[in-house]
């Protein structure tokens, strides 16, 4: 039996208010991110309509990082992820497969793909499913180039997705969630709110209910994916969207889904749509 449950309840409420205060103070209003002095990023904006009953404002993960980490992303010379963009560009112009073609044979230059990152995952009419950028790359390699496809989470793949993201920087994310994509989107939403693992934590528990709060030493963000692939200083390498998802579910003491699985494709579409209105930032820099 409780000794003084009323008092206990009041204390919890008081702390909750104090925490809410700390949250808004932590998320600076006066910060801005302009990459290379020219690409203006939208790091904070009104939540897309489908999310408005849950969140009023959405924030890029950049907002939650330390000043030093933030600074690295503001200039390509300081952004360690840009090395991989260069490697992706080299591969883009290299012939692969039996048809004697490179990506550039069909897509002139990488800049011609600038609208890709902001609109994927996207419904593919011909195949009748929602495709991620990685799936599209694999489709080009196998069906057009007669090439051995990149592994979904391979270094080559992450270099290529970093290139495609880099040329789309500054463009607001705008993935479609209606029409034929709606069913997949709903499946992704279901996964987002499922409490996985022995710790029974959903994505929303950490990234919707507790963004801005510290969980041990980690400053929780909204778990947005507009900055992917991200360069993680801790890994000294690029991390893909599905690899990040896998890490977060593993941390619930849960059985994860695999990289490239239909579940993660659905989750990616849903999480991407929570960032509709933020700008593409990949490759971003994270701790």
């Amino acid at each position: 039996m409780r000794k003084t449950s009323l008092f206990g309840g009041a204390a919890v409420a008081a702390v909750a208010i104090a925490l809410a205060g700390a949250t808004s103070a932590d998320i600076g209003d006066d910060e801005e991110l302009i990459v290379n002095g020219e690409i203006e990023m939208i790091i904070e904006t009104a939540a897309p309509e489908h999310l408005q009953d849950r969140l009023s404002t959405i924030y890029s993960g950049w907002v939650f990082r330390s000043d030093e980490t933030q600074a690295m992303q503001a200039d390509d010379f300081d952004n360690p992820g840009m090395i991989f963009v260069d490697q992706g560009l080299e591969a883009f112009e290299t012939v692969m497969g039996t048809e004697g073609q490179s990506c550039a044979s069909c897509h002139e230059n990488a800049e011609s793909l600038s609208e890709v990152r902001s609109t994927y995952p996207k419904w593919d009419e011909e195949r009748g499913l929602v495709q991620t950028v990685e799936m599209q790359i694999i489709e080009c390699q196998t069906e057009r180039m007669g090439a051995e496809p990149y592994g979904y989470d391979s270094q080559d793949m992450r270099n290529m997705t970093a290139l495609i993201s880099s040329v789309g920087r500054g463009i607001p994310v705008n993935v479609a969630i209606d029409g034929p994509a709606q069913e997949t989107w709903e499946q992704g939403r279901e996964i987002y709110y499922t409490r996985f693992g022995q710790l029974e934590l959903s994505c929303a528990n950490c990234h919707e209910d507790n963004y801005g709060n510290l969980i041990r030493a980690d400053h929780l963000s909204q778990g947005q994916i507009n900055g992917f692939p991200t360069y993680r200083l801790r890994n000294a390498g690029l991390v893909s969207i599905h690899n990040r998802f896998r890490g977060c579910i593993r941390d619930t003491r849960g059985e994860t889904f695999s990289v490239g699985s239909p579940e993660f494709v659905a989750l990616e579409l849903y999480v991407a749509s929570r960032g509709n209105g933020l700008t593409v930032e990949g490759p971003s820099v994270r701790n």
Binding site: R195, F196, R253
Partner: peptide, 18 residues
């Protein structure tokens, strides 16, 4: 989390292996 419970979980993992 429930620290002394062993059932009723969704996709429980083998510790932190995934």
């Amino acid at each position: 989390p429930s620290f002394y419970r062993v059932s009723g979980f969704t996709r429980p993992g083998n510790a932190f292996t995934g």
